[in-house]
Measured scan of single mutants.
Amino acid sequence: MGMPNRKYADGEVVMGRWPGSVLYYEVQVTSYDDASHLYTVKYKDGTELALKESDIRLQS
């Protein structure tokens, strides 16, 4: 078993793309699913969504 190939840690605050949009919002990573390679993130309004790594970026 190798290390999970994840870029962002639980609790890390990053920018997540809103689905169907080009806009990124501040989100907190809450979990990562090794099987689906999706991150569960929480937006400031409390919305929780699963995002692909390509829809997440570090805060500038």
Rank of each mutant, 00 (worst) to 15 (best):
L49I: 13
G11C: 07
G2D: 14
Y24C: 03
L58C: 11
T40N: 09
L38W: 06
Y25D: 06
D45Y: 03
V29Y: 00
G46H: 05
L58H: 15
G20C: 08
D33L: 05
E26A: 08
G20F: 07
D55H: 07
K7T: 08
S21I: 03
M1H: 14
M3G: 14
L51V: 06
L51F: 02
E48G: 03
M15G: 03
G16E: 01
R17H: 04
A35V: 15
A9E: 10
Y25R: 09
V29N: 00
P4I: 10
G11Q: 04
S54D: 13
K44C: 11
N5I: 15
V29P: 01
G46M: 04
E48C: 10
L23M: 12
Q28F: 08
R57D: 06
R17F: 03
E48H: 11
S21W: 03
D45E: 04
G46Y: 04
S31F: 08
I56P: 02
N5L: 13
L58E: 15
S21P: 02
A9Y: 10
A50I: 15
K52W: 08
D45I: 02
T30M: 15
T40Y: 12
G46Q: 05
M3C: 13
A50V: 14
Y8R: 00
W18L: 09
P19H: 06
K44R: 11
Y32W: 09
K42L: 12
L23D: 12
G16P: 00
R6G: 03
K52S: 12
S36C: 07
P19N: 05
E12M: 11
G11P: 01
G16S: 05
W18H: 07
A35R: 12
A50M: 14
S54K: 09
W18F: 12
V22L: 15
L38G: 02
K52T: 12
L23F: 13
S36Y: 08
Y24Q: 02
Y39P: 00
A9V: 08
I56G: 01
M15F: 13
S36H: 09
E26W: 09
Q28M: 15
K7M: 09
D10C: 05
S60C: 12
V14S: 01
Q28E: 13
K44T: 08
Y43V: 07
M3T: 15
S21R: 06
D55I: 01
D34A: 12
L23H: 13
K52Q: 11
Y24I: 03
E26S: 08
K52N: 10
M15H: 08
L51W: 03
V41F: 01
Y25E: 08
